[in-house]
């Protein structure tokens, strides 16, 4: 994790740091943020009539 954040300026794998930021950091942030972005979109869709299914674990 130390390598990820600081050592060699994040320039591991032999690629420039800007490339790691674009294809590595940014992509990963988008992956983990996608759910929260989707929540905002769904909240807007709900105002236009979209309804989510009720999902229950029935024993």
């Amino acid at each position: 994790m130390i390598t990820l954040f600081g050592v060699n300026g994040g320039n591991y794998g032999g690629y420039p740091i800007w490339a790691q930021v674009v294809a590595g950091w940014a992509v990963s942030v988008l992956v983990f943020a996608s759910g929260f972005i989707a929540k905002i979109v769904i909240a807007r869709m709900k105002k236009k009539g979209y309804t989510e299914d009720e999902i229950v674990w029935k024993d």
Partner: peptide, 12 residues
Amino acid sequence: LDIVDNWTNQIN
């Protein structure tokens, strides 16, 4: 591809 693969396949 090498950069994206490293991140998506291992860390993510």
